[in-house]
Nucleic acid binder design. Sequence first.
DNA 1: GTAGATGCAAACGCTTTGCCGCTTA
DNA 2: TAAGCGGCAAAGCGTTTGCATCTAC
Lengths: 128, 128
Amino acid sequence: MAVKRKTRQRDAIFGAIRGADGPLSVAEIHELAGRAIPGLGIATVYRNVRSLRDEGAITAVELPGEDPRYEPSGRGHHHHFRCTDCERTFDLEGCPVGVERGATLPGGYRVDGHSLTFYGSCEDCNRV
Amino acid sequence: MAVKRKTRQRDAIFGAIRGADGPLSVAEIHELAGRAIPGLGIATVYRNVRSLRDEGAITAVELPGEDPRYEPSGRGHHHHFRCTDCERTFDLEGCPVGVERGATLPGGYRVDGHSLTFYGSCEDCNRV
DNA sequence: GTAGATGCAAACGCTTTGCCGCTTA
DNA sequence: TAAGCGGCAAAGCGTTTGCATCTAC
């Protein structure tokens, strides 16, 4: 099978994702990695994001009404905060949802997991 | 400004949304309303969904990683359950998130609202 | 030297828009 | 009868794919 090669583009893309304080969209990754690699093609970003995800190096984060974002794998169970002013997305710690896996909700719904996103304004935007 | 007219298409579209037990996607609305109105154009669904939303008759429901869905307005604060088997989405009652509007999370994030989605299998799919 | 990776452009799939005949009021 | 509405097809837009070239190994 195909042997993965180490390229400047791939490094820049993974580096951008690892260096962020929240999950990034493809456009954001392209923007950030493009600073190190001028002329970086958007198709290259899509391809590398996909292969990094397939390898398990990064994880897709789906937020309501938004394009998928990506963050390094292994951050454990956590949720996100979306600033409706600056449109940035941040990681949160802890989980205020007291529904365990395997629980059954009224209506007979058996729960395997959940996704929670908070909306509001971040510290930077509050300050103004 | 434009005076809204009552048409068969519009009735069928709104009727499909009101008759469902959870929010519907545009494709689902087209499918359901199309049974009453053969030849119903997808553009007509998009246009009516948009105008119903603009009027406030229906509300957009954004779930992680999915196309927007629509439900009648006025159902109050609630969340959704997504069956990963049959891919249907259901309304839930109540809210297990003990974070009020106006609260501030660690990191200085001021909360205006939140979105919670549970994943798992619904009663029908559990039974099998 | 060779298989895999990149960049460009074309192809795609879904949503929106333009156009014009149809329908509601 | 007139203006909004619906259907069709074209236009947009973000994502994926094909292809020739380049590059890591």
